[in-house]
Design a protein around this nucleic acid. Structure first.
Lengths: 123, 123
DNA sequence: AATTAATGTTTACACGCGTAAACGAATACC
DNA sequence: GGTATTCGTTTACGCGTGTAAACATTAATT
């Protein structure tokens, strides 16, 4: 089953650094999102049920860590969007951002470099 | 309120060509998605409520057409993903697809051309 | 005019999600 | 050892979604 938006926020915390206790997660994400303790606990339990995180006992509490790698999540999400909206092709996606003026100087420089490297490795 | 996945499928039909009757939409999308008539009608009504489509009477039935432009929808969705997963920057997104070997020759050629054009227009 | 066919509108229902409160168990303190 | 505290687990509840069935209305046919 898919990871929901609220769940993904918890995952991001764990991807940044893990393992972490529920309390630590709450401390990082609660104020920002306006979430109470119970909310974080519920989300963690749903993520456990979905096998997206694992929990390891540490004394009286648990420490949580991702089981699903971020890379895999990002891949699924990105591919989904690409397929649904751009016929699965990357160039039209970039063209779209270009038209929306969402390409920064830095982006452009990096893209050039990236393409250059692709040429180099496959002559 | 956001447009759901099922609703987006209806929207794609209307974006391709509109106005269309519910029957025409069903004909195009029903077999593919395994949707009955009632399903399409419900989705159309929800889209009406969300002001994403408009309906114009045509005799005994309605003809439906998008009110939300595809470009706007695509922008929202794309920006959402970019912000959530890539810190709002395009280059890392492309790098991701590159690592996943999702860049076709054609993509690469088009990206080069795109970058070339950006240089030209802003010397 | 009464019946049938075609459309749209209302209602339904199970399920996931966001958001927690309530409950229970284990540990720490008095 | 009894009580307070700290965690985790269970239950809750309203809302949107996917998927339709049921109902209402209007137009066509007999």
């Amino acid at each position: 089953m898919a990871i929901s938006e609220a769940e993904a926020i918890i995952m991001e915390v764990l991807w940044r650094s893990s393992p972490r206790s529920a309390e630590e997660i709450l401390a990082e994400v609660g104020p920002q999102q306006g979430w109470q303790e119970g909310t974080v606990k519920s989300l963690l339990n749903r993520l456990l049920k979905k096998k997206a995180v694992k929990a390891e006992r540490d004394g009286r509490r648990y420490l949580y860590a991702p089981r699903l790698p971020r890379e895999q999540y990002v891949s699924q999400e990105s591919k989904g969007l690409l397929d649904r909206l751009f016929g699965g092709r990357v160039a039209p996606l970039v063209a779209h951002f270009s038209e929306q003026r969402k390409l920064s100087k830095k982006d452009i420089a990096e893209l050039k470099k990236l393409l250059q490297e692709l040429d180099d490795e496959q002559p």
